[in-house]
Simulated scan of single mutants.
Amino acid sequence: MKELSRKEREKLRRREAIIDAAEQIIGEHGFNSATMEEIAEKAELGKGTLYLHFKSKVSIYLAICERGSRLLNQEMAKVLTKDLSGLKMVENIGHVYLKFIQKNPIYFSAFNYYESILDMEEYSNSPIVEKCEENASEAMTFIVRSLQVGMQDGSIKDTIDPKELGLIIWAASKGVMHMAFMKHNVKYHKFMDEIEFSFESLIQNFIHLIGSGIEK
């Protein structure tokens, strides 16, 4: 790999510092309330310098999405290197994903925002959007691969195509996370007041349900 020049390293350092600052500001105030001025101040940069790296708050949020999905994939990839049955791989990947989101809610919000703008023409050729899409595709590959391993070693039912099953698990995981975050939000369905659950219990019960459902 080509070694970066001093100027390139400094540019990268500033870019990462901006993303760090944006994670804090958006995490505290929310995406709509956060401003470019606050992010620049937190990063200890002039507003002009900030705009040299990111043209808008949206582009920064997408950079947060890319970072989060990349870090999550790094953790998920480790599961596939372990000597586990396919079923255990699926369960471990589930724990990695759900605990990662619990620890980094800003990334879950960024993931959802990214998905909300996918059909907007202005972002169709964005390099950062393409990178986010590559990361999402890689994450799905990890899930599908673990399902394939399980179908081969006999720990997972082979009655559903692994790609379709992976999509079901992905979608269900997002729904569980959304419901967990709603419980901590001011606005949520009133029926949730009648259900006692913790973030941890929701995670454990969901993973157990998925595991028992696909186990052969």
Rank of each mutant, 00 (worst) to 15 (best):
K2I: 13
R6G: 11
E10D: 14
E10C: 03
K11I: 11
K11R: 15
L12Q: 14
A17H: 04
Q24G: 03
I25F: 10
I26W: 06
I26S: 06
I26T: 09
H29Y: 15
H29M: 09
A34Y: 05
A34F: 07
T35A: 05
T35F: 05
I39G: 10
I39Y: 06
E41H: 04
A43I: 02
G46S: 14
G46M: 01
K47E: 02
T49L: 09
Y51G: 00
Y51C: 07
H53L: 11
S56P: 13
S56Q: 06
S56A: 10
V58M: 12
S59C: 06
Y61R: 03
A63L: 10
L71H: 11
L72G: 00
N73F: 08
Q74W: 05
A77G: 05
K78I: 04
V79P: 13
T81I: 00
T81L: 12
T81C: 03
T81Y: 09
L87S: 04
L87C: 07
L87M: 09
I93Y: 05
G94F: 06
H95I: 11
Y97E: 13
K99E: 15
F100K: 07
I101E: 11
F111G: 05
E115V: 14
L118Y: 05
M120H: 08
M120N: 11
E122T: 10
S124P: 07
P127S: 04
V129Y: 02
N135I: 00
A136R: 15
E138A: 14
E138Q: 14
T141E: 14
F142G: 04
I143R: 08
V144E: 07
L147P: 09
V149N: 06
M151R: 12
M151D: 06
M151E: 02
G154K: 02
G154W: 07
I156S: 02
T159V: 08
T159N: 12
P162Y: 08
P162V: 03
L167W: 04
I168Y: 01
I168W: 00
W170Q: 06
S173C: 02
A180F: 00
M182N: 13
M182C: 13
K183T: 00
V186C: 00
V186S: 14
K187V: 10
K187S: 08
D193G: 03
E196P: 01
E196T: 09
F199E: 12
F199P: 02
I203N: 08
N205V: 01
I207H: 04
I210T: 00
G211Y: 02
G211W: 04
I214F: 01
K216G: 14
